[in-house]
């Protein structure tokens, strides 16, 4: 047992320092493409760290959203940037020297070191044992409608936060559309191998998504993870040139984007009227309500992430500047 603990500690140390080292290389390397690749690697190592910290739900979210979709967004933006920016085109990916004067750089560094020291001191002053809210969560878990505590917190105990969270997602797509115009996906690469790969993978992804959604009630998983897998399946289909949706004006797609937040609001209003408190589910029906919310949220999250990816691929429409 002792030996296992030692190995685990060694692994933790290696993982922690790798994370820091990767972040350092990512942020201070002169090659943007390399930075993005390092970012994705960083995200995957973060996912391992979440597993080590007994947070498998966060690990799933990190791997799919943090590393996967953010990575896809960054790659797609970088490809676009390269067509816009000549300095990036010329093979040797660029970087202008740091703009700061050497002295300013050292001042910034000194400030960072001091801040790190202060924060580290504060962290180390925390008690080594603290129950947090774990007792409260565990004692109320039975009346939450689900047996997986993370899902209970997200969808029941702190469901109001998740409602606002869905509003943030809706805002993000509204924002990207209003900034970038609303045209369809741009360039498409097809290849027979990619097509076969996608034909095989997309049903599997959809199945995995449904599984994660279902399993979220009693094990790691849930709407955010399921939604991001669904979004990933969509991204693959779009990349292979499938005319998935006409994202431009589709009423259906708007409905899918709104479904999750709308379900939350409808249920909040319903419970406000019936129970007197927003998102207070009657214990007997809590499981059904949560499953309904999660299903619609999964659809919305998947569609939003896909639409963010497609939106970031599009050319910006020259905006009307008559007021400026």
């Amino acid at each position: 047992m002792e030996a296992v603990g030692l190995w685990q500690s060694a692994f933790d140390l290696m993982l922690g320092f790798s994370l820091f080292g990767l972040a350092w290389r990512m942020l201070f390397c002169a090659d943007l493409f390399k930075s993005i690749v390092l970012f994705i690697t960083f995200g995957l190592l973060m996912a391992i760290a979440w597993v080590r910290l007994e947070a498998p739900d966060v690990a799933l979210a990190e791997a799919t959203i943090g590393a996967g979709l953010t990575g896809a967004l960054l790659m797609s933006a970088f490809a676009k940037l390269r067509t816009l920016d000549n300095s990036l085109k010329s093979g040797q990916p660029l970087l202008p020297r740091p703009r700061l004067h050497v002295i300013n750089f050292w001042i910034a560094l000194l400030f960072t070191v001091l801040l790190t020291g202060g924060l580290a001191y504060a962290v180390l002053s925390l008690p080594s044992h603290s129950p947090g809210l774990s007792d409260a969560v565990m004692s109320q878990l039975d009346s939450s409608g689900v047996t997986h505590p993370v899902t209970a917190v997200l969808l029941n105990f702190r469901g109001y936060d998740t409602l606002l969270e869905m509003a943030v997602l809706l805002l993000s797509i509204q924002s990207v559309w209003s900034m970038a115009g609303m045209s369809d996906a741009g360039e498409v690469h097809t290849s027979p191998v990619l097509n076969v790969l996608i034909q095989l993978l997309s049903p599997v992804l959809i199945l995995v998504s449904a599984y994660l959604l279902w399993v979220g009630a009693h094990a790691p998983g849930g709407a955010f993870q399921a939604g991001s897998i669904l979004g990933a399946a969509g991204v693959l289909l779009v990349l292979s040139g499938r005319p998935l949706f006409n994202l431009k004006k589709s009423w259906l797609i708007r409905l899918m984007l709104v479904a999750g937040p709308a379900a939350f609001i409808a249920l909040a209003t319903l419970t406000l009227i019936n129970e007197g408190q927003l998102l207070k589910y009657p214990v007997a029906n809590a499981a059904n309500y949560i499953l309904l919310l999660e299903t619609l949220a999964t659809v919305s999250i998947g569609t939003t992430l896909l639409a963010l990816f497609v939106g970031s691929q599009t050319e910006a429409v020259q905006q009307d500047q008559s007021h400026q």
């Binding site: 947070a55 809210l133 917190v153 702190r158």
Partner: peptide
């Protein structure tokens, strides 16, 4: 798990 739920929110 409360911080975990917060972090999932934060990742989104």
């Amino acid at each position: 798990v409360v911080p975990q739920a917060m972090v999932i929110t934060g990742i989104v």
